[in-house]
């Protein structure tokens, strides 16, 4: 039988897992859906508009920048959709549309593509875009911006006005007019589009952990650290729960801090990184002039990731013994 030049020759292994980058991104998108649906109930159709504009501009920005750089098209991996969702979820529903587009360009073109595209950005694109928007348009990104539309007739006292994180302080504890813990848990409160409903975000987080898309280390250690420090700082379980459920901690710990590219790939590294995120979040929330500290904490820890990975390299098989032997020999 003459088969020469017909057989495929490639390096082993010849079987591969069914997992693909696109599949992973699709899982993240599915996990982000509950928070998106919750946001539409809380903030109305305007939230959907922001989400749609953000996703569309992220995908278009990625498409055009890959084209301009004459690189392979990567919009098929769906990572730009994830960035678009995360960016929208970190913005208030009242934000002007052109600011969303500006944010998308910062996230995709400046932070992601200029550093080489997927897997190469050194900070989380959506978070950096959010920080740029906060710095550039402070009035539209704070207090008064978080106006909700009472579409379902819920008791939404907390929806207008300040972010819940502005209604708690170390000096005064939980202030008058602050939303109840149940409001924070369900999400019927003021805040950015996707951050308000702890319940919806937890559902997404559990899905990602079950699907083995993310390891539970980062969310658990991050939220755990914040809970512990806040419990010690306030000496009050209610205040601790308020800090855990309110603001951007849930979305940050579950969806932003777990971004593959900008978090450590070693388990030990993940623990150090999440501890750092938790500690910084608490410092900013308790002592900083900003009411919220999740975004800055994650960005700072993102930058430290290469160092954390260097400190936490796994011990290569068979080398533990050698070290022990050397120690024994030295003794």
């Amino acid at each position: 039988m003459e088969l020469n030049n017909k057989l495929t020759v490639s390096a082993s292994p010849h079987v591969k897992s069914a997992e693909t980058t696109t599949g992973i991104m699709l899982d993240v998108i599915i996990a982000l859906l509950p928070a998106g649906i919750a946001s539409i109930f809380v903030f109305g159709i305007r939230a959907l508009l922001v989400i749609a504009v953000s996703v569309a501009s992220c995908v278009l920005a990625e498409y055009l920048s890959r084209k301009a750089m004459k690189r392979d098209q990567t919009i098929g991996d769906l990572s730009a959709v994830v960035t678009g969702l995360l960016l929208a979820y970190n913005l208030p529903s009242t934000i002007p549309v052109w600011e969303v587009i500006f944010g998308a360009i910062v996230a995709i073109v400046v932070v992601k593509q200029m550093f080489g595209g997927i897997g190469q950005n050194f900070v989380n694109p959506a978070l950096l875009a959010r920080i740029v928007l906060i710095s550039a348009f402070p009035s539209r990104m704070s207090a008064g911006a978080f106006v909700g539309t009472n579409v379902v007739g819920w008791d939404v006292d907390g929806v207008t006005g300040a972010t819940p994180m502005g209604l708690i302080s170390l000096a005064d504890g939980i202030k008058d007019g602050a939303p109840s813990l149940m409001h924070l848990f369900l999400g019927t409160t003021a805040g950015c589009i996707g951050e308000v409903s702890a319940l919806a975000l937890l559902l997404g987080g559990i899905y990602l952990i079950i699907r083995k898309v993310i390891s539970p280390i980062i969310p658990c250690v991050y939220i755990g650290t914040v809970a512990l420090i806040m419990l010690i700082a306030f000496g009050d379980v209610n205040a601790m729960l308020y800090e855990v459920l309110g603001g951007g901690l849930m979305i940050g710990a579950i969806f932003m801090a777990t971004d593959y590219t900008t978090s450590p790939i070693t388990d030990k590294g993940k623990i150090i990184y999440a501890l750092g995120c938790g500690l910084l979040t608490c410092l900013i929330r308790l002592f900083g002039s900003l009411p919220e500290g999740v975004s800055f904490s994650i960005i700072i820890m993102n930058i430290l990731v290469p160092h954390i990975e260097n400190w936490t390299k796994p011990t290569i098989f068979g080398t533990v013994k050698e070290k022990k032997e050397k120690k024994e020999a030295a003794e």
Binding site: Y260, P314, F317
Partner: peptide, 19 residues
């Protein structure tokens, strides 16, 4: 073949604890 997304699955899988 696509770009590495640094998911760490190779590190988790390596029986020799390499990266």
């Amino acid at each position: 073949e696509r770009a590495c997304i640094r998911c760490g699955r190779c590190v988790q899988a390596c029986p020799m604890s390499l990266m």
